[in-house]
């Protein structure tokens, strides 16, 4: 037995995961209690566990609070125009199929401004990963409502409640044929990292919706002013059901109505790359 020492916390200035983050940029810009740092943590852990070397991983993000994520990962990272990261990622994957291309961006960026890119990339089944962080609002832009703001939720542009029903994103992705569809929150850290790792190994469009706290934006309008209020919401309302009926997983955030999580879909489907090669063969461009 070694010598007994008095145990207490140890103060240090770097973490073992600093190999995959740009530590010189920390502390990052996100607000206290924001879930985006936890999404970043799960992403780098998934990379470390993915059996794909980090120099083959590429991250693309658009504009918004989530869009800043690309700037904090020690990988080749691309921060592109608002709503366009999926279009950019599709191009990159088609030209360089050897890369593991991941888009991490917000709900406002990917399905409100860039909604058309989203639906067509899923329909084509391009082999990219899309991790959409849903905080129900345009955070950085000024807390305006968007296509994911739950019906009745408040925002700077819907002070009396949002009059529109939101997207049910897992249903949308599944209806368009996505081979992998999941939803987790930033509280479900290990399940989220496992789903990300799985997404990296899925052939085709892998989609994860990540429900994330925004205590400073969405929360300040909807009685979720502290990150801890979101943790309470998740602990009380989340239900894990991998075989849930996706018609019924829309998010209302109403008391007593569950937030349903799970790895809903994991199936095989021919990718854009496979179908493109067939056409190339028919055209006589490939032997």
């Amino acid at each position: 037995m070694g010598q007994k020492v008095v145990l207490r916390e140890r103060i240090v200035d770097e973490s073992p995961r600093d190999d995959l983050i740009r530590r010189e940029r920390f502390p990052h810009i996100w607000c206290p209690g924001c879930g985006l740092g936890t999404v970043l943590k799960c992403y780098v852990e998934a990379i470390a566990a993915s059996n794909i070397p980090p120099d083959k991983h590429v991250i693309v993000s658009g504009i918004g609070c989530t869009g800043r994520i690309a700037g904090y990962v020690r990988l080749d990272s691309y921060h592109v125009t608002h709503g366009r990261p999926i279009a950019f990622a599709e191009g990159m994957k088609i030209v360089r199929p050897d890369l593991e291309v991941t888009v991490i961006s917000g709900d406002g960026d990917l399905v409100t401004i860039g909604g058309n890119h989203f639906i067509h990339a899923v329909r084509r089944n391009v082999d990219i990963n899309v991790f959409l962080v849903n905080n129900f609002i345009y955070g950085m832009t000024g807390n305006q409502m968007g296509s994911t703001t739950p019906l009745g939720a408040k925002s700077s542009t819907s002070p009396y409640g949002c009059p529109e029903p939101p997207f049910n994103l897992p249903l949308l992705a599944a209806a368009l044929g996505a081979p992998f569809v999941a939803r987790w929150t930033t509280l479900h850290v290990r399940q989220l990292a496992d789903a990300m790792k799985r997404a990296m190994n899925v052939k085709g469009f892998a989609f994860i919706e990540i429900i994330s706290p925004c205590p400073v934006g969405f929360g300040s309008y909807n009685d979720l002013r502290d990150g801890r209020d979101y943790i309470k919401l998740f602990l009380e309302n989340c239900i894990v059901d991998h075989s849930a009926d996706l018609n019924k997983v829309g998010i209302t955030l109403k008391p007593g109505e569950p937030i349903i999580l799970g790895n809903f879909i994991d199936r095989e489907a021919p990718t854009y790359h496979d179908l493109e090669l067939e056409v190339f063969k028919k055209a006589g461009w490939l032997k």
């Binding site: 145990l7 916390e9 140890r10 103060i11 240090v12 200035d13 770097e14 973490s15 920390f26 502390p27 607000c31 206290p32 209690g33 990150g227 801890r228 943790i231």
Partner: peptide
């Protein structure tokens, strides 16, 4: 577990 902390990064979220 031996607990290690990097004080300058913390934002007191309490998680």
């Amino acid at each position: 577990g031996l607990i290690h902390i990097i004080p300058e990064r913390c934002k007191e979220c309490g998680y």
